[in-house]
Computed example of a mutant assay.
Amino acid sequence: MDSKQSFASSVVAEDHEYVTPKKGIMSVEDMHIWEKSEAYSEIVGFILAMNAAVRGKSLSCKCAVSPVTEGVVALLDKLDVWIDEVPPIEQPQRFGNKAFRTWIDKLREGALGLLQEALPREFHRAVPEVMVYLVESFGNQTRIDYGTGHELAFLMFLCCLFKVGAFTASDQAAIVCKVFHRYLRLVRRLQLVYRMEPAGSHGVWSLDDYQFVPFIWGSSQLVAHPRIEPKSFVQEDIVKAYAHDYMFLGCIEFINKVKTGLFAEHSNQLWNISAVPSWSKINYGLIKMYKNEVLAKFPVIQHVLFGSLLPLRLLQGNQKIY
């Protein structure tokens, strides 16, 4: 499969044996197993397929919205309401509000029921495996931080729903424009309300303290846009006008909201990207950067969990590594 094709869901047999996902990359020496594994191929294939599905499409584009898509969005809506029910507590330190631990405990306790409510009964056997990725998608309970590893867990959650057949090829645009965008709004609120630390931030040399994938899919949305050029995203009026319709500009709006000072100083990497002549080149470069800066980094991948749907086993035959 290449980036122009749909993501192929795998219909799991009725007698498929689901397992609880667990860590598999224990040392830097194990990274070569990950990079040649079925799980790696599946997650990169998923990212590329969603990237192609939203090429040139705004967040408000007309797209098929299935009952499963609606169910997952409703699940994320409930998690957002829980933030109101678990307000931050008064504490001495500025960052890492301990109320987040209560919120994540509530998710751990309720994940099974939430997913059973969101998914048709035929997929309920898969829920104990799939829900592990959902719980890992919102931050670390001990450190009260969030980063690209948690974002990756959510991608793996979505990918698993494809693997079991809950999502189909017709859901692809909605997965980005409805589901992932809803997730993005939720985790931003978590970051602000509970003052979450960035997990493994590279500071000004990274795209963002917390996210990466919305820049990939967001740049794809802007390919061949008649008005918005790469140099446009550093212009405040363009960001304000289009942030709600294009994920990339939404990311810039959020950065401008939470950071002070000159954009070129606090977001140097993005400032440099604004000089690239086309969105298609930016998109290609960000995919390459994601592989190098996230998927190839042991500090991120050591926390990845592997199960029956995204296994840490080597690809067989002519299966493709991206």
Rank of each mutant, 00 (worst) to 15 (best):
R121Q: 08
Q221K: 01
Y183K: 04
N140M: 03
F157E: 02
G139C: 09
D208A: 11
R125V: 10
L186T: 08
Q141S: 13
R188H: 13
R185C: 08
A166T: 05
K163Q: 15
L184M: 11
E129Y: 11
M131Y: 02
G149T: 14
F162H: 12
V132A: 06
H124W: 14
P120L: 01
Y183V: 04
R185K: 12
F157V: 03
F215N: 04
V176T: 13
Y183F: 05
G165N: 13
R108H: 11
H124C: 03
V135N: 00
G165C: 12
T148K: 09
A166R: 04
R188F: 06
A199S: 06
P230T: 10
S170Q: 08
Q172I: 14
Y194R: 15
R185W: 07
E229W: 00
D208W: 11
D145I: 05
F154I: 15
I228N: 04
R195A: 06
A199V: 05
A169V: 15
L161H: 11
H225V: 05
M196W: 08
Q116K: 15
H202I: 12
Q191G: 08
L161A: 03
F215V: 08
A224H: 07
Q172G: 00
A224W: 00
V132M: 02
Q211M: 09
G200S: 09
E129W: 13
L158M: 11
S170K: 13
S201C: 09
G203W: 10
L107T: 14
A166S: 04
G147H: 04
G113L: 14
G113P: 11
L192D: 07
P120K: 03
L190E: 03
K163V: 15
F180W: 02
E122T: 05
L155M: 07
G110P: 09
I228R: 09
L155F: 10
L114M: 11
M131D: 03
F215H: 07
V130P: 07
L112K: 14
V127A: 01
L207V: 12
Y146S: 12
G147D: 01
A169Y: 06
C177Q: 06
A174K: 08
F138D: 02
F154S: 10
Q221N: 00
L222E: 01
V179Q: 02
E197D: 05
